[in-house]
Design a protein around this nucleic acid. Structure first.
Length: 724
DNA sequence: AGCACGCCGACT
DNA sequence: GTCGGCGTGCTC
């Protein structure tokens, strides 16, 4: 009997296509299907008795997998993401499969070549000539082990391939394929650290609720031992024979966190990081799916790792914006992880020193259980904040005399100093001193940033690079001056002021090469580098052994930025970096240069702390009908002709009038022209997730028709991180 | 993602 | 007049 199989063909902008099949493949199995003129890979997402398609159906070519390749619970997670983030399944399912499997590779555990004796050691020795001493040694080496020995281990022990071949020809050993399970830590396991009362309560509360869904918000100031809580809870989960998934914002930035996990547990661990190749990624994925690895640590995309015995999810630094994917399917890994935990009926821990307003609100609405860690492990003296009013001060390369003096004092005491400036390059603008001409990007509505290191001006939006203009193209004068400050400029100035100090610059330009970031961080961790200048990259979870001073040069950005999350992020940044300053014997100091020294929120943050600051922000979000009280989506559209974008956006705005949502716009996007494309956007606001989703879904059917023949490209961003 | 089709500039 | 570059649309 033939039936209709719904096949999600990857990257087709659709949920699925209907095919016929005589056999009924499992949901989540991969199939080859005829598609247009070629054969493409698809995933079975449904089986029906009939079709809505009015064309004759084609038939599935081959069923690749007998078992589901994507397990049921991940398939339904993908369905949820598809509906919530308004994206077709065919764009989401690829996230749940490693590249090799998207290309049709057979589903199998990583295999490695191993060797095992086929006869007893004694008879093996007899078959070998007396003078072949290395072959005899190899026989002894193999006879000491019962299981097949991986070739890698044999080679590492000082034997070579020709010895193996000789024994193989002598028929005393056999070659076999065995599963390559990552080595379990051989070194003695690190003992649990003693915990304080708060940590003990947190651990106990979570351990008491391992058998069902519950979300724990673990709010711990920097240095309060959040990681130790994770570790001691995980011990219990592993003891139940279950797996643990840990998501971190950026894996390269958390080497010491990884080190603690690997040193603590006697189980195989898989780490998903950007340097894995396709084979390694497939291996890690397969080992997790077959329950061979018990602990998976990774960034956003590791959310889709299949784990049949999943017993706990941990989201570290849950407030971090990098959990939200900013291109393609714009999903939030924290929110999707909450769905996964709920569907799997297991606990989830959201950890942060500075929880997102969304999470604080969920705790206030009693959806989350709050666990607070307020005590620092090191009894460091209190922080000393100083606001430097720059309205009346002379700035030298962005730095006041007072700031420079404080930096020098801390350096003289052999301490570390961190200088934050959230702008890379040397200066954000090149200006003609004579006529006011500015170096602008041809393709975007933006100024070119001067990069003195590479003798170029660069557009930070489209990547355009050109050599630094020698004279003004407008008035031919040669007095082009850099205006404003960036990391390069601050770095150069401080280098000239502090010539004997070892300095490190950390920004996207500086750490773009492989391992550059790791190298820099190693110099910071060892204490070799004393003065660090960098962007936000520098703020994330590092260990600065002798840090006593943090300087924030462009805090005003957070106040002037029209974006609704700018203040929240500034508060989180200041709290995070401030928490790292100070050692047992030296008080930490934080200098904030600002034009707004009396800004009430800045002062509340400093005097009352992050929680009070967050409460105030929540009040203003409620008044402004903004998240977490209101639900937003941004519809962005672009084309080379403005009119076409406008027509399109007006049409889909019209399509939503029947729904109880507020649609604002079309308005120019903050960067109205980027790479020769005119960009405009709509903002959709709704009082509930359900009405928002319904309006967007309705709109999508209209939008598909409205774009035909217009060249308009568009996307939907549900729960946007920023409105730009 | 990939393939075909169509419109344009650069060539024989 | 033809080749082929890329921009655009379609796929059960």
């Amino acid at each position: 009997m033939t039936q209709v199989v719904q096949v999600c063909v990857l990257h087709t902008n659709r949920d699925y296509f209907d095919y016929t099949s005589t056999v009924e493949p499992s949901l989540g199995a991969r199939v080859w299907v005829p598609f247009r003129t070629t054969t493409r890979l698809g995933i079975v997402v449904g089986v029906q008795a009939s079709t809505h398609c009015n064309k004759p159906l084609k038939s599935i070519t081959t069923v690749i997998d007998d078992e589901p390749m994507i397990p049921k619970e991940l398939l339904s997670l993908c369905h949820w993401i598809s509906q919530y983030y308004q994206s077709p399944l065919s764009e989401i399912l690829p996230l749940a499969l490693p590249k090799k499997y998207r290309q049709g590779a057979a589903c199998q555990l990583p295999q490695i070549e191993s060797y095992q004796l086929t006869v007893s050691a004694g008879s093996a020795h007899q078959k070998i000539g007396v003078r072949a001493t290395r072959q005899h040694a190899l026989i002894d080496f193999l006879s000491n082990r019962l299981d097949p020995v991986p070739k890698k281990t044999i080679l590492q022990a000082g034997f070579n391939t020709s010895l193996l071949n000789a024994l193989h020809i002598a028929q005393v050993l056999k070659r076999c394929e065995s599963i390559d399970i990552p080595l379990i830590q051989e070194a003695p396991i690190e003992a649990p650290l003693p915990v304080n009362k708060e940590q003990g309560i947190a651990i106990q509360s979570i351990v008491e609720h391992l058998s069902s869904y519950r979300c724990f918000l673990l709010q711990g100031v920097t240095g309060s031992g959040k990681t130790e809580v994770y570790l001691q809870v995980i011990v219990h989960v592993l003891a139940l024979g279950r797996q643990v998934l840990i998501l971190v914002p950026e894996i390269g930035l958390t080497p010491q966190l990884l080190a603690r996990f690997t040193a603590r547990f006697h189980v195989p661990i898989a780490v998903f990081h950007s340097n894995l190749n396709d084979t390694q990624r497939q291996a890690a994925w397969q080992l997790a799916r077959d329950n061979h690895v018990k602990l998976v640590i990774g960034t956003r995309s590791a959310l889709f790792t299949p784990m049949p015995a999943l017993g706990l999810i941990v989201i570290d630094e849950e407030h971090d914006a990098s959990f939200k994917q900013m291109d393609g399917v714009r999903y939030h890994a924290r929110d999707a992880a909450l769905m996964r935990a709920h569907a799997t009926n297991i606990p989830i821990i959201l950890g942060s020193a500075t929880p997102s307003l969304e999470s604080i609100n969920n705790y206030l609405r009693q959806k989350y259980t709050l666990l607070r860690l307020t005590q620092k492990a090191l009894n460091s003296p209190p922080l000393y904040f100083e606001i430097i009013d720059i309205r009346t001060q002379v700035l030298t390369h962005g730095i006041t005399a007072r700031t420079l003096a404080v930096i020098k004092t801390h350096l003289a005491q052999d301490n570390q100093v961190l200088v934050f400036i959230n702008r890379r390059g040397f200066a954000p603008v090149m200006l003609c001193h004579h006529c006011g001409w500015m170096a602008d990007c041809r393709a975007c509505d933006s100024h070119l940033t001067l990069h003195k290191d590479s003798h170029q001006v660069v557009c930070h939006h489209c990547g355009l690079r050109q050599s630094v203009p020698k004279q003004c193209p407008n008035c031919q004068h040669r007095e082009l001056v850099p205006v404003g400050i960036g990391t390069q400029r601050v770095f150069n100035y401080l280098a000239s002021e502090c010539p004997k100090i070892t300095m490190v610059r950390i920004d996207r330009d500086e750490v773009s090469q492989k391992y550059a970031l790791e190298t820099h961080l190693a110099r910071i961790n060892s204490g070799e580098a004393q003065l660090m200048v960098g962007t936000q990259l520098l703020a994330k979870g590092h260990h600065f052994p002798r840090l006593t001073l943090v300087v924030v040069l462009d805090a005003d950005n957070g106040f002037y930025n029209q974006d609704f999350r700018a203040l929240e992020q500034l508060g989180q940044l200041l709290t995070q970096v401030a928490g790292r300053a100070g050692r047992a014997e030296f008080p930490g100091q934080v200098l904030i240069q600002t034009h707004l020294p009396h800004h009430p929120l800045l002062n509340q943050l400093i005097q009352e702390g992050y929680e009070a600051f967050a409460q105030t922000l929540l009040l203003s979000r409620r008044e402004a009908n903004l998240p977490p009280y209101y639900f937003l989506a941004v519809i962005r559209a672009q084309a080379t002709q403005v009119e076409r974008v406008l027509t399109f956006l007006h049409a889909i705005k019209e399509a939503m009038v029947t729904h109880p949502v507020t649609v604002l716009g079309p308005a120019p996007a903050p960067l109205a022209r980027k790479a020769h494309q005119h960009r405009l956007q709509l903002l959709v606001k709704a009082s509930s997730r359900i009405t928002l989703a319904a309006a967007l879904k309705h709109m999508r059917t209209h939008a598909a028709l409205a774009t035909i023949g217009t060249g308009v490209r568009w996307n939907i961003d549900v729960d946007p991180m920023d409105l730009s």
